Amino acid sequence: MSHLKAVPLVPLLLILGLVLVDLVFVNIKRVKPAEEPDYSLYEQTLLDDNAQKLEGSAFVNNASPLGELQVSGSLEDFAGFVLVEKGSLLNDAKTTSNIEELRNGLLSYGVEEGDNLSSIAAQFGISVNTVIWANDISDSSLIQPGEELVILPVSGILHVVAEGETLPSIADAYDVELSEIATFNENKIAVGDTVVVPHAKPASEKVAAYSGSSLPDLSGYFVAPVANGWNWGELHDANAVDVAAACGTPIVAAADGLVVSVGSPSNWNSGYGGFIRLEHANGTETFYAHNKANLVSVGDRVSQGEQIADLGNTGRVYGVTGCHVHFGVAGAQNPLAR
């Protein structure tokens, strides 16, 4: 009788385990990877659907920004986003193709159909007279489409430098702060250069001090800048009178107008402290000085009786006037003068 040799159990189980593991990996390799879903049909359907919606929604060719925003359903279709055409955020009534940069902040503006001096001045936030003076316009009705106008960066004039003149001497001649002129001009100037003089008038346009009686009487055109204030009534510097009241009392516009100049209450400003200058449609100007706070900015349009400042005592204030507004009128009699 022969005897069979026993095979150890543990090595046998190990061998069988390795064989099974190998078979599993072989089968895994043979499994075909799952294919990525085909979204092309869905995407095309979505694009086609949105393309149809674009015709009546936020992406509207040649529409103004407000027009685009007001199209029905635009916010719904685009989850709160509004699609606009590139460049449509520019004022569609005026393009930049008719505006050219010159020097010292000056611009050359090509007059367009429908323009007038008032609309051009309002577009650039300067006074109508500034446009007239810079371009020697004698008749506003004569501006024509295609005509080139020089536009200043601020209300004021262009001064042609004469022999021996400097920026300080020009500032003195027009009674403006040197720092204001330096803001808009190069430090070095030569004979024949043009200098921007902010908030100035041509010499022929200046109103002489204490000459109120020789100016036109526009009774009823202006209202008092301070309600129930104490009117000292004495005409002084630049056809002005002082009206006193409690500090912080509202100062209102004496007539409809455009804000052409503003001086900070924290600055001296030739003794005026905080001030505001308004230009009115009839060519006159009103001036409000020593303000505690200014509530308007250059380029703002204000209505008669609208508050523009708080009454104060900034700048050079002395004597018994205390908190008051120095109210000046250029181009007409001061209605508060006694």
Rank of each mutant, 00 (worst) to 15 (best):
D139N: 14
N185A: 01
D139M: 05
L102S: 13
S141P: 01
E177R: 06
D172M: 11
V176G: 00
A162I: 04
T183N: 12
A93F: 10
A93Q: 10
N129Q: 15
E180H: 13
D139P: 09
A122Q: 14
P168E: 13
I137V: 03
N135H: 04
F124C: 05
E163D: 15
Y109S: 09
W133H: 06
I157K: 02
N116S: 12
H159N: 00
F124H: 03
G156H: 03
D115T: 05
K94L: 12
W133A: 11
S179Y: 01
V160K: 15
I99H: 04
P153A: 05
R103Q: 11
I126Q: 00
W133L: 08
D139H: 10
G105E: 03
V111F: 02
E186N: 11
I126C: 01
A93D: 09
A162S: 15
P153I: 01
L142S: 15
S118Y: 15
S141L: 14
F184T: 04
E147K: 11
G146H: 07
N135V: 04
G114S: 12
I143H: 10
T183V: 08
S155I: 10
L178N: 04
S119L: 14
D136E: 09
I143S: 01
Q144S: 15
L167V: 08
P153L: 00
I181E: 02
N129I: 03
E113Q: 13
L167F: 11
D172E: 15
L158R: 09
I132S: 00
A122M: 13
L149I: 03
A93H: 09
T130N: 03
N104C: 10
